[in-house]
Write a protein that binds this DNA or RNA. Structure first.
Length: 581
RNA sequence: GCACCCAUAGCUCAGCUGGAUAGAGCGUUGCCCUCCGAAGGCAAAGGUCGCACGUUCGAAUCGUGCUGGGUGCACCA
């Protein structure tokens, strides 16, 4: 149920009617016709560009088309007034009944209001977080985790079949470093002095790993060389880190569907198979790359390597998949991993990377394009930095990790709900300031609070009404005589509620969950505004003493706002509060 | 040197994939509680949408070229 889509149908139908009567050429391409809210509400409730879009193809002036179309549209019972403005805009004002009906629809559909089949059941895989399993998650990961999870919820709500996936980078040199670092903590657990050399991970979080190693191996590894214990310790430590990371994710309320391991790709022939698929297309060759221009590398030497011709799929230079010593580069298993995702039958892939991986986008898209023959689109969202502040001062804390602020540090201070909401108050490709003091402030400067406050107020109305002997279920409210909601301030709120399905569609199509946070802020603002109008004009209060019928209509309005806020917060993964304290 | 991202009110940012006179919040100024939660609301002031061309009925939005900031650029992951 999307009012704008419905009205667009009416417009297209009217155009067809005109064509039938010979007033327009038949067979016009109406795909460019849109129905949107005008930027200036004084222009009406809805606007269509049909006349201007079709003017050229129809060989008629926009004005002429607009006037004929306006006349046709005026016949629609939902449309109260139509006028033609400017170069050929057609503005429509809808009847109050249309907006009142929105309230009823919300109360009958509840938290499903705005849910759609837009995705048509397409299978989408969203890979996000994918933090190296070498320590707890830090702030940098939080935003990616929240954006990925909210996007997953958004797409699921919009009719996609969503898989949330975490790619464990457990195949590279960094897990060897982890193993060595953990081994020092193991020595420490055995009463020896740990030697945390330069390049090892110094964080305290490895102390429990050392103790666990001691519990498992006693002192039996102490006198052994690295080649003896490396494999076991690496696996052991990685496993413990993943437990830690899963715990971190749980703190944030993020649940993955699939964890894929990089290491598990080695020795299975999967990497070779993926590269063979590329080779079959003539995209793999032996060659020597040019040194990068403008940047002087003292240790540059030409090397014969196995290269992927990513330039054939839009990349700037070809990329090595094998080092000169014959081992794989990081890119190779990543190709295999994405090949695996393609083979698992996903219709669409989304990767969420940190902004520092920007240089990786083109080659990854090139690989997926080649491996799926252009069938599977890969959208890569780069998530920018989060800058932490406390009371306006840059914030750098290192309680557990030694060198970085952890996810837990953030969640423990700010709470998961606040953290999640704040992370979505910017679009992903812009950096974001996160001030611990501000996000906990209870004022309208703080968007989380502001939205939650609106929801709490709705509940407050319901509570007060019940105290006054008027207890309504949503079904009661849906049956209320909503034609009493006539005031401009009430209709304004209803219009905003009517935009929710459209907003969801736009957000889902563009993979931009932050739009929901902004919408909720606006909705809350309209609600607070209406609330305060009740101070000046008592006829706008939600509870009308002694008048059950009117109260029911007004409370229906409030309640439907609460429902949409709850739905929106749900997509952001934030729990709506019922009471502010 | 190349690629990607960013540039909108004094500050922090939206802007519905090309629509009309570009919007919020903060800050500034002035108002509104006997009254559902003032933890709110109303109003005013504030703009060459970084610059210049181009595309078309129409550009903050698309293209090209600049300027400024960020990120990344062979055997790291």
């Amino acid at each position: 149920m999307n009012l704008f889509a419905e009205l667009r149908v009416a417009v297209v139908q009217s155009l067809a009617n005109l064509a039938e009567r010979g007033l327009l050429p038949s067979g016009l391409d109406t795909s460019g016709v849109s129905v949107e809210p005008p930027r200036d509400p004084a222009h009406g409730d809805m606007m269509t560009n049909a006349a201007m879009v079709l003017s050229k193809a129809a060989g008629l002036s926009p004005k002429a088309i607009a006037e004929a179309l306006a006349e046709e549209l005026a016949k629609d019972p939902r449309i109260a007034a139509v006028d033609v403005a400017g170069p050929g805009f057609i503005n429509m004002r809808l009847t109050a009944a249309v907006w009142q009906d929105i309230v009823k629809v919300i109360l009958t559909t509840g938290l499903d209001y705005g849910r759609s089949t837009l995705g048509n059941g397409a299978k989408v895989n969203i890979e996000f977080v994918s933090a190296n399993p070498t320590g707890p998650m830090h702030v940098g990961h939080v935003r990616g985790a929240v954006v990925g999870d909210a996007l997953a919820r958004l797409l699921a709500f919009s009719g996609w079949k969503v898989t949330r996936e975490y790619y464990i980078n457990d195949g590279g040199a960094q897990v060897d470093v982890l193993a060595r670092s953990a081994f020092e903590r193991y020595r420490e657990a055995n009463g020896l002095e740990p030697e945390i050399r330069e390049g090892l991970y110094p964080g305290d979080y490895l102390i429990p790993v050392g103790e666990a190693l001691k519990a498992k191996y006693g002192d039996s590894l102490l006198d052994k060389g690295e080649q003896y214990w490396m494999k076991d310790v690496r696996e052991f430590a990685t496993e413990m880190m993943m437990v830690e990371i899963r715990g971190d994710l749980a703190q944030l309320g993020v649940q993955m569907d699939v964890f894929s391991s990089e290491k598990a790709l080695y020795g299975t022939g999967k990497i070779e198979a993926a590269l063979q698929a590329l080779r079959d297309q003539g995209l793999i060759y032996e060659g020597v790359l040019e040194p990068p221009k403008g940047k002087t590398l003292d240790d540059w030497e030409p090397r014969q390597q196995t290269l992927f011709r990513s330039t054939a799929h839009g990349d700037d230079v070809d990329r090595p998949v094998m080092k000169s010593d014959g081992s794989w580069t990081y890119f190779a298993p990543d190709i295999a991993y994405h090949y695996d995702k393609v083979q698992r039958g996903f219709d669409q892939l989304i990767d969420i990377f940190g902004a520092d991986h920007g240089g990786y986008v083109k080659r990854m898209k090139a690989a997926v394009s080649a491996l799926s023959n252009g069938r599977v689109p890969l959208d890569i969202k780069l998530v920018q930095l989060v800058k932490l502040f406390k009371g306006g001062e840059p914030f750098k804390m290192s309680k557990r990790a030694g060198t970085f602020v952890t996810l837990r540090d953030v969640v423990e201070q700010a709470g998961a709900d606040v953290t999640r909401f704040m992370m979505l108050t910017r679009k992903n490709d812009v950096s974001l300031d996160f001030d611990f003091d501000k996000v906990l402030e209870q004022s309208k400067d703080n968007p989380v609070f502001y939205v939650q406050y609106a929801h709490a107020r709705v509940n407050s109305v319901l509570r007060k009404a019940a105290e006054a002997g008027m207890s309504f279920s949503d079904a009661d409210l849906a049956d209320a005589d909503l034609s009493q909601l006539e005031h401009e301030a009430e209709l304004k709120l209803a219009r905003q509620l009517g935009e929710w399905p459209r907003l969801i569609e736009i957000a889902a199509k563009s993979n931009e969950p932050h739009r929901i946070a902004f919408y909720l802020y606006e909705l809350a603002s309209d609600f607070h505004s209406l609330w305060n109008r009740g101070n000046d004009d008592s006829s706008l209060r939600f509870i009308q003493e002694g008048n059950v019928a009117t109260s029911a209509a007004k409370i229906a309005m409030a309640r439907s706002t609460g429902v949409v806020i709850a739905t929106g917060l749900g997509i952001l993964g934030v729990k709506p509060v019922h009471e502010m304290r």
